[in-house]
Amino acid sequence: MSAILEVKGLEASYGQLQVLRGLDFEVAKGGVTALLGANGAGKTTTLRAICGMIRRKGEITFDGQRIERLGTEDVVRLGVAHIPEGRGTFGTLTTEENLHLGAMTRPNNSDIQADVERCYGFFPRLKERRNQQAGTLSGGEQQMLAIARALMLRPKLMLLDEPSFGLAPLIVRQIFDILADVKREAGVSMLIVEQNASLALELADHAYLIETGSIVISGEAKAIREDESVRASYLGY
């Protein structure tokens, strides 16, 4: 399987503090790749670097095109949907407006409304809340909205930053089930950052472990899940 995203020697820093020290990894087309690691390992920074939300060095190739010099808007326009930490919904706009914003880069009058309905198919709760201000939704609903909005882009690659963050276990379960559906039905490639390693490894095909800005382990998700020593020393479950 060819790679949709290839990253070589990725470096990034916040001021004086270097957070990423030359990462190499890739995301397979149609597959789900997980980035695991402790707090402060540089997972979120990696996603932000791919999208050009911070300055970065190194080679980033997306779908055969080098993107490390592009701004956020242009990376998004190529088909990368980033679901940021804290979800980044537009709190003052309605649920449906949020969804339409997801399709902002697509030409007008294409089947946007049909896609909105498709999203409501994945997330029936959002349909009930379609005219409500997104800021008034519950945390789980906002996470669903964030994923749905990303789907509206018809992305080739989705970057998910801690989709389980701050949510009740039941809701987390629901969201991961839906992500599995999305993977199966929409064939979107995903790069997922998670603290909840067991959940992420269930969904993922491939996984990387980051420690203080470098990749320490890479392998099949299944193999990592079953490797007692890795689980004990890095994943802590």
Binding site: M53, P84, F90, G91, T92, E97, R149, L153
Partner: peptide, 23 residues
């Protein structure tokens, strides 16, 4: 759509960039 994009850019510039709006 431009109106919606302007509202989004005003409400949350960071997220607006993430949906491809030129803020």
């Amino acid at each position: 759509r431009v109106g919606l994009a302007m509202r989004a850019a005003a409400a949350n510039p960071q997220s607006a960039r993430l949906v491809g709006i030129r803020v």
